[in-house]
Design a protein around this nucleic acid. Structure first.
Lengths: 271, 271
DNA sequence: CGGTCACTTGATCGTCTTCAATACCAGTGG
DNA sequence: CCACTGGTATTGAAGACGATCAAGTGACCG
């Protein structure tokens, strides 16, 4: 275990995590193209406002937050965090999707997570990032320097609790992924992946949930510990069995959610 | 992703993690057999004193800590945390080894980590534990109720930072393990496992480090996403190649650390 | 219309799993 | 002192799942 950093997903932890912690909602910044000092007005209209760590800061203190943040953006395929580099900055994603990954010297890649609006990343254990981050589509973010972040944390203790909640949830997700990578079959992995992606997609009424997949088959494979061919084949099989429909390569419709969840949790009779 | 909790390993993070945080060393409690109120005197002589989260609390405040902690112990094979149960308590291991794991309905098991003296565990995301914990040998621990823990955290803000450091390091380890489970071969997994277990075993001088393996082959397999047969076979092969010696099933001696590390990091020429 | 890129599909191969037998060790009781 | 027992580890042979290699398809774009 060498240098490490971590990212945090807003998906799971939003509905209260470490009990007894209540924070006044606060905001973040939307961005204009490259490095741009963000104003507090931008913070309050930020799409990450209510779901990121920023909500640990009171409305009145928004200017402090906006003053510490620098908005930025990267183009598709561009790497904005590199494993092993000095962890100088923290990031909050405000738009787009990115993949986080670790590489082996010979090029083998393990994607440790996909992140999107509201995700926080950059906390490091040895002062260097523990993974790389690459934009899938265009990605916008807010950047905080290490020093600025420390000042913010000192000033707003609630921020630290928020970070701990974040980390706890990210850790839980990582453990779930370890179960997937260590013990699930290819079908179960794909099913788990789809189920976890369905959660955010509450279509309200009973209509079958459509899942958007901004990442490629290769990305999915590297996330699930499979090859892109196996991912493709397994999708084809789930489709043939009527569990899902695939109107487009990057769109999946869940037809039999019950069966998919059974598969995901390892309760597949046979087949 | 359902209910989750997490554990924290002292191994990696001890030499300063999130920069700028300095805590006065403090202590913990040693234990006498079953549930026993621990005195502050016991805390100060606790083997987990300097390596656990307890070092976030000043010496003078030790009685507060000792008052909140209840000492306990479990026998080999006994389960003291059960996945899905209400996460009522936090634990600090003060002696022995335990395995943390998640199960699939059909019995498949993924061990997410092995923990020992100084490890903290119990932080949960949805109020329920995210994994089970089972004693390997006899295990002693200190237990804090959720309410007590909250009070301690409120009283000692440094504790929260300490917890965040813990979580950050645990997360980094989990990501490293994801790389292992998703992308490494059986040999590479075993090599990684041995290397990570070697770190703690600094024998000082240049003598070959002996690694103690308190867990069974089956446990190692369930930790590395392999079967116990593959673990055994792979050990045999590493031994035949002169990389390790295996004087006893639960003891490994590293003969060629350089080659083992190369294997662990995926730089294996061929073979 | 040729080129690129992502995805799909097919055929073969290899690693690890599975099933099964054997070896080893500690503890127990004859 | 030595057979007996239960648990763990080792070793062997066969099989399966996913990887690898390779070809084919379709969409988008210059």
């Amino acid at each position: 275990m060498h240098s490490q950093s971590f990212a945090i997903s807003p998906a799971a932890w939003h509905p209260a995590s470490s009990d007894g912690s209540r924070f006044v909602a606060s905001g973040h910044t939307t961005i204009n193209p490259p490095v741009l000092r963000s104003s507090s007005g931008r913070c309050i209209r930020c799409p990450a406002r209510s779901i990121s760590i920023c909500c640990a800061i009171r409305d009145e203190a928004l200017p402090r937050l906006a003053g510490a943040a620098v908005a930025g953006a990267v183009e598709p395929g561009q790497c904005f965090i590199e494993e092993g580099e000095r962890a100088a900055d923290f990031f909050t994603i405000t738009a787009g999707h990115a993949r986080l990954y670790k590489l082996l010297p010979d090029g083998r890649r393990q994607i440790t997570g996909f992140v999107t609006t509201g995700h926080f990343l950059g906390l490091a254990t040895r002062g260097t990032y523990g993974f790389s981050a690459e934009a899938i589509g265009r990605v916008k973010f807010c950047r905080f320097s290490r020093a600025q972040m420390r000042r913010l944390v000192d000033e707003f203790p609630a921020l630290e609790r928020r970070l701990l909640d974040f980390a706890t949830n990210e850790l839980a997700a990582a453990q779930e992924q370890m179960l997937l990578l260590g013990r699930k079959s290819a079908r179960e992995r794909l099913a788990s992946f789809l189920v976890s992606r369905t959660v955010g997609t509450a279509s309200g009424d009973g209509r079958p949930p459509g899942i958007d997949l901004p990442m490629s088959r290769g990305d999915i494979g590297d996330y699930l510990g499979l090859t892109l061919e196996t991912v493709s084949r397994t999708f084809a099989r789930l489709k043939a069995e009527g569990l899902i429909a695939v109107p487009a390569p990057n769109e999946i419709i869940v037809l039999n959610g019950r069966a998919l969840e059974a598969l995901a949790t390892g309760q597949a009779g046979a087949v």
